[in-house]
Amino acid sequence: MPPIDTPAVPPDPTAAAGGRRPRRGKVTHFLGQNVGLVLALVMLVAAIVLYCAVYWAETQSLPGNFELTSTVNNTMPLVLAAIGQSFVVLTRGLDLSIGGTMDLANALAAVHIHDSPGSMVLWSVIVLAIGAGLGLVNGLLVGVGRLQPILATLATLSIYQGIAIKVLPQPGGSIPPVYTSVLVNPFQPYALLYVLLVALVWYAFRRSRIGVAIFAIGNDEQSARANGIDTVRARVTSFTLSGLFAGAAGLFLAATATAGDATTGNGFTLTSIVACVLGGMNLFGGRGSGIGVIAGAFVTTMIVNILFFSNIDPLYQSFYEGLFLVVAVVLSTAIGRFLRRSR
């Protein structure tokens, strides 16, 4: 045993006792530890293949630029909402107020954004700030007020929705076409750039101190605290990020619809959870990948597209979505368990 100096200067490793076991490769580890992400990507590929198949059966051609563009544009709000949701899911919570925040962002955008670059930029920033602020309120209620996430955000959902309706009582307002074409260009799939941006944000989040802290409280809150992590701050941050992303989702929703409606955001509370689950996020916290969640969001949209082209009565849409959600959760749990056992 070498004398213990400062850890910065490790002594000769050959003096170490015991044989060095060969390490498993980086990729092997990654695949084994990110089953949810892998499953989400597989599911996305399967959904795309199935979509192309039903599209072919219906039109005898493959989907082209138009389909790609509209799919990406339609999915953008969900991508953002689901990523927002995933920050909270990582901490073992759920943010039910995402729909309310999106409503308010949507309403504010429709009322205030005018056809001048200044107004567009200024109000985008304001809306994002308000989104983050609403998330901060949730975070304080949960982190400092020690309320259960589901209940606190259920209550703020009601409040945020109320404010949204106050801002925009009737569907209306208008979004300048320029704004729409910058966020969700209707002719070219430029919005893919935003998807890429979200992925990069996730990449940075995963490698940031606060990201580690948020993952840590989902792993084991007590241990996180024992490791000196400020769990309250991490939790408040996770909700604030959720609100920020919900605000962005609301802007994209308004841009897609080119007009405002203070109720269209409601459904995103649920679909954002669905996208998280399909994306392999563990609802018990501490495990999951934003890349998977993005894939999950696209799968959610693709299901709707597939149902449309399979001539299934759109009235049944919720039925298939619900069924798919259950099947996906059950299967991913079963596969995860199977892989764990066989390792």
């Binding site: 649920l270 609802l283 049944y316 919720s318």
Partner: peptide, 26 residues
């Protein structure tokens, strides 16, 4: 589903709401 398959209650009942909605509407 909750007791035997371990599906979280939030997810299962959320999905059931969708299933019932779709069935009722359809």
């Amino acid at each position: 589903a909750i007791a035997f398959l371990g599906v979280p209650a939030v997810v299962m009942t959320l999905a059931m709401n969708g299933i019932m909605e779709g069935l009722t509407l359809g």
